[in-house]
Each structure stands twice: as C-alpha cells, then as structure tokens.
C-alpha cells in the first residue's frame, strides 16, 4: 500500500481537467502503454498565456494525481512562468509523493515542456540523445538532467525519478557511470566559478615542473633539446634552454608559443615565461 497524501488521493479520486482541449495549440505526449504510464497534455495558449489545460493519463494513482495537479497549476499562467515549473513543484503541490513515485511528477514536467515546445514549433533536446534504458526508452540527456535538477546521488534515485533501470536492470552500470560523470562535472563547474585560489610559490613550482615534464620536455627531447626551470618569482617563470635548444633561433618562439601557453592553460592564467639571460 502506498502512503499517499490526502491531496494525492483527492486529485486521484476527483481529477480536474480530464479530457482534451478543442483546437489545442500546444500538445505534449509522453510515455507509452508499454512503459506503464503515459500522459497527453493539451493546451490552449493565447498571448503567451495558457488559458486552458486538459489531460488524459494512463497510469497509477500518482500519475493521475500529478497530471491533475499540473493542469491546475498552469491554468492562467504565462508560458514564461510555466516553463519554470519543475517536477519538484508538482510533487510539492500534492504535498509530496512516495520516492518510488517521483517519476510521475517528472512525467508531468516532461509533458508540459513538450506541449510548450510544440506550441513554439521546436524540437526538445530530450528527444535527442542516446537511449540508455531500453525498457523505458530513457535517454542520457534526460537522465543527466534529472541528476542535476533533483540532485540525485544513487542509481536507485535515478530509477525513482526517471524509471531508467526499473525494467530489466541491464543499464545499471551505465547509470552508475552517468551519475559519476554528471556529479564530477558539477563539481568542476563549481570550481571554475569560484575565484581561483591563491597558490603558494611551492605549489606553483610543483605544478610548473609537472607540466614541463609531461607536456614540454618530450617534444624538445625529440629535437635533442631540454628545458630547465630556474626560478619562479610571482608571475614570472624563469627557464633555461638546454642542449640543441640553446643555439636554436626559434627558442624565443618555443618559450612563448609552447611553454607559456601550456603553463597558462594548466597552472595560472597570468604567468609570464622568460628565458634566463
């Protein structure tokens, strides 16, 4: 037995706005019979405002309640506002949904997006992407989006929100790696947005040495040359060319085009590389 809130039960038993809007100019059709739930949302939009919204749903009690709630939420709403509605908003309107049923609220959000896209004559990005869960036809784009939007942290949560992995379970490994990838991307974004941390001179030297060893020396050695780090003074990186490079006319270019570029990319934007005189 599911512990549904009174609001869910009430919307399931007395669903609002059942049917199809006549002459709808925004239609969102998501889910399928095979998947066990589906929602057809029809909208009448005038002057960028949703003046009528109706639904037809095949699915469990929370799917029906989520659809009913969605139509109530968006009636009379500007499209610009409606676009901001998330699945969490739908669940909240209903006083919450059991976690295993969160995918019902996601279906509501997807139908709304599809209907608005249809009104605008656009193609949704979620219809592109690679299908990861073949049982329910869920794409990597939809999964990644759910991970980011609802802050998902386990494969089980992904299944609760998107249904992916809820059938045969063969895609679990892929879900796991999508999860890792998305979470680590998220962390990188956070780092980039943060003000760059001030590096100590010691950290700077270590990083510079590392980049020189990995990215610069192998190329120089092919030409019988080498490079040595002499000093780091603030943003100034003093290097000395060795071997064949010492007499090379292009050593100035090598230092600016290769070494400085690499160090700026990988260590610090403001670095200036100079050859020891």
């Amino acid at each position: 037995m599911w512990l549904y809130t009174d609001t869910v039960t009430e919307h399931f038993q007395n669903p609002r706005n059942v049917g199809e809007v006549d002459n709808a100019n925004g239609v969102g059709d998501v889910g399928s019979l095979a998947c066990g739930d589906a929602l057809k949302l029809t909208l009448k939009i005038e002057d960028e405002c949703i003046i009528e919204a109706k639904f037809k749903t095949f699915g469990c009690a929370s799917a029906i309640a989520s659809s009913s709630a969605l139509t109530e939420m968006i009636k009379g709403m500007e499209i610009a506002e409606a676009e901001k509605i998330t699945n969490e908003d739908i669940a909240e309107f209903l006083g919450g949904l059991p976690k295993e049923k969160m995918h019902c609220s996601v279906m509501g959000r997807e139908a709304l997006e599809a209907a608005i896209a249809d009104y605008r004559g656009e193609t949704l990005p979620s219809t592109e992407g690679q299908v990861v869960c073949e049982c329910f036809g869920v794409t990597d784009l939809e999964i990644t989006r759910a991970i980011k939007e609802s802050n998902l942290r386990s494969v089980e949560e992904i299944t609760n929100f998107t249904k992916a992995g809820g059938g045969c379970g063969k895609c679990e490994d892929q879900l796991e790696s999508l999860l890792r990838q998305t979470i680590s991307e998220g962390l990188q974004i956070v780092e980039v947005n943060k003000k760059p941390k001030r590096m100590t001179t010691l950290q700077k030297i270590k990083k510079i040495e590392d980049v020189l060893e990995r990215e610069v020396r192998p190329g120089l050695r092919l030409d019988g040359g080498d490079i040595e780090l002499i000093d780091v003074d603030g943003d100034f990186v003093i290097v000395s060319m060795r071997g064949q490079c010492t007499s090379c006319a292009k050593s100035e270019t090598t230092i600016k085009e290769l070494v400085e570029k690499k160090l700026r990319e990988q260590v610090l934007e403001t670095l200036i590389v100079e050859e020891e005189k």
């Binding site: 399931f12 295993e100 049923k101 969160m102 089980e156 249904k163 809820g166």
Partner: peptide
C-alpha cells in the same frame, strides 16, 4: 489505479502490475 478505486468500496484484490520504480514491468 483500478485497485485504488475498488478500495473506495472496500473491495480487496491484487494486480499483476506493481507500479513501483523498482518493478515497473
């Protein structure tokens, strides 16, 4: 959905379909 409507009349039965995310099939 059928079972929950039956439940309103206190009619108890079962369904082969369990719409839980773990067993949507």
């Amino acid at each position: 959905a059928i079972l929950l409507h039956m439940n309103r009349f206190k009619i108890c039965a079962s369904s082969g379909s369990a719409c839980t995310s773990g067993s949507l099939e």
